[in-house]
């Protein structure tokens, strides 16, 4: 199954990845060969086999509803590229 350049561009946009123009053919080739590999799965009839999401069929444990975290804003924001007045800054969002 050969992917088109436009498929790669579409997926790259969904994933918000800037891909260099020169790299698109390589990515297209790579993805095509990965999908060929992956498509070996289609040869198996998996009928109504229950999908396995987690290796152990465990169920969700619930946390007691209590406030355990205190304010660590300054500590966490040391890693932030741009902040002001305690807010993370991003280019203007237009709604």
């Amino acid at each position: 199954m050969a992917l088109e350049r436009s498929d790669v561009e579409k997926v790259a946009h969904l994933a918000r990845l800037q891909i260099e123009e020169n790299d698109i053919p390589e990515y297209t080739r790579n993805l095509t060969s990965i999908l060929d590999l992956v498509n070996q799965m289609q040869e198996v009839d998996t009928g109504d086999i229950e999908p396995l999401a987690h290796p152990l069929d465990a169920t969700q444990r619930l946390r007691h509803d209590e406030v355990t975290e205190s304010n660590q804003r300054e500590h966490f924001q040391q890693n932030a590229p741009a902040t002001e007045a305690g807010l993370f800054l991003v280019p203007k969002v237009i709604e």
Binding site: E84, A85, G86, V90, P91, K92
Partner: peptide, 8 residues
């Protein structure tokens, strides 16, 4: 914020 949006 200088043309930026703040996130809380």
């Amino acid at each position: 914020f200088h043309g930026m949006t703040g996130i809380d």
